[in-house]
C-alpha cells in the first residue's frame, strides 16, 4: 500500500485538475447555454454570436484534462509502468498533487466567473448585436487567469525531478 502512496497522491492531483476544471466548465457552459437559448428563442439569427460566448468557459475543462494527461504521462500511468509508479515517493506524490492545485482551483473559479461574464455578454448581443466583439473580449479576459493557472501547473509538473 505504502509503495503506491506517492503515485496515489499524484493521481489524485491529476483527477482534481480534470474534475474541478470540468465541473466548473460544465456549470458555466450550461448557464450560458440557458441564456443563449433565451436570445435564440427571440432572434434565431443571433445563434452564431451567442455560441462563441457559450464555448468560452468550456476551456477550463480542457486545460484540466491537459494537466491530468501530462501528469499521468509523466508518472508512467498512461504507459502502465508499474515500476515507475512504485518509485514515486510520498513526498514527490504530494508535490505532484500540489502542482495540480492551481489548475483545479483556478480552473473551477475562473470557469464560473467567465460564465457570468459570458451571460452578461449574451445581454449585450441581445441589445447591441453590433457590439458582440466587445462582449467576447470581456468574457475572454477571465481566460487569462485560467491560462496562468495552466502554465504554473505545467511548469510545476515538469519541474519536479
Amino acid at each position: 500500500m505504502s509503495t503506491f502512496l506517492g503515485a496515489a497522491l499524484a493521481i489524485l492531483g491529476g483527477a482534481c485538475a480534470a474534475a474541478f476544471g470540468g465541473v466548473g466548465s460544465a456549470i458555466a457552459v450550461g448557464r450560458v447555454g440557458r441564456a443563449a437559448a433565451g436570445i435564440v428563442t427571440e432572434d434565431p439569427s443571433k445563434f452564431g454570436k451567442v455560441l462563441i460566448l457559450q464555448i468560452l468557459p468550456g476551456t477550463q475543462g480542457l486545460y484540466g484534462f491537459l494537466i491530468a494527461f501530462l501528469l499521468f504521462n509523466q508518472i508512467g500511468l498512461i504507459s502502465g509502468d508499474i515500476a515507475a509508479l512504485q518509485a514515486i515517493e510520498p513526498l514527490k506524490g504530494l508535490m505532484y498533487f500540489c502542482a495540480c492545485l492551481p489548475m483545479a482551483i483556478g480552473g473551477f473559479v475562473s470557469a464560473i466567473h467567465q460564465g457570468n461574464a459570458a451571460i452578461a455578454g449574451v445581454g449585450i448581443v441581445a441589445k447591441r448585436p453590433e457590439e458582440s466583439g466587445k462582449a467576447i473580449i470581456f468574457a475572454a479576459m477571465v481566460e487569462t487567469y485560467a491560462v496562468l493557472a495552466l502554465l504554473i501547473s505545467i511548469l510545476a509538473i515538469f519541474g519536479i525531478k
Binding site: 433565451g38 451571460i119 441589445k127
Partner: peptide
C-alpha cells in the same frame, strides 16, 4: 437565466 435573456431581447 433563460427568462432574463428573453426579457433582455424583448
Amino acid at each position: 437565466t433563460y427568462a432574463v435573456a428573453r426579457i433582455r431581447a424583448n
